[in-house]
């Protein structure tokens, strides 16, 4: 039954795991890998780029794993992922879900996780390594910012976000 450590993730050669606290590293990786990949795919618009982003994050995290455990590994890893996704995406025309072109980084992240990937507030908070109330606060401020947008700005995007047929219809909470 045993199939290695982490959602089909090859553990690879011994050098690809940290020297100490290996199980914790594998547990962390398995806990967050799929959600990281989904996030990166929406951000970059490409599965290949998403995989590259996520692998880079876990490689870097492995190198600082012991130090990361002294603080919040989730928060550190999320910072790395956000940065990686920034490097591999832009706000050019044709971007599928350009929330990061409209909102501040962490606001956009929570909207993407909660509204697009349908994670609960608790799941999003665990993923970003922040308390629940921070996620709730960011969602509220993101909603205010989005409602303040003029109707001519990305109507298709905001319709998809709030699940309505036409822009300007009743906003979902």
């Amino acid at each position: 039954m045993r199939a290695g450590h982490g959602s089909g993730l090859a553990t690879g050669p011994e050098s690809s795991v940290p020297d100490r606290f290996r199980l914790e590293y594998f547990a962390f990786r398995q806990l967050h890998h799929d959600a990281y990949l989904d996030y990166a795919q929406v951000r970059t618009g490409s599965r290949v780029r998403a995989v590259r982003c996520v692998e880079t994050v876990f490689d870097r995290l492995r190198d600082i794993w012991q130090a990361a455990l002294r603080g919040s590994p989730a928060a550190q890893a999320w910072g790395m992922l956000h940065e990686q996704a920034n490097c591999h995406s832009d706000c050019g025309a044709g971007h599928v879900w350009p929330i990061h072109c409209l909102l501040e980084g962490r606001q956009a992240d929570v909207v993407l996780l909660h509204r697009r990937l349908r994670l609960s507030v608790e799941e999003a908070a665990d993923l970003m390594g922040v308390p629940d109330y921070t996620v709730r606060g960011l969602l509220r401020s993101a909603d205010r910012a989005l409602h303040a947008l003029p109707p001519c700005v990305a109507p298709v995007f905001t319709d998809a976000l709030y699940g309505r047929g036409a822009h300007g219809a009743s906003a979902a909470q």
Binding site: Q41, V42, S46, R47, V48, R49, H88, V96
Partner: peptide, 9 residues
Amino acid sequence: EPQSGGDGT
């Protein structure tokens, strides 16, 4: 999203 093979970089 389309799972494009190219990464566009």
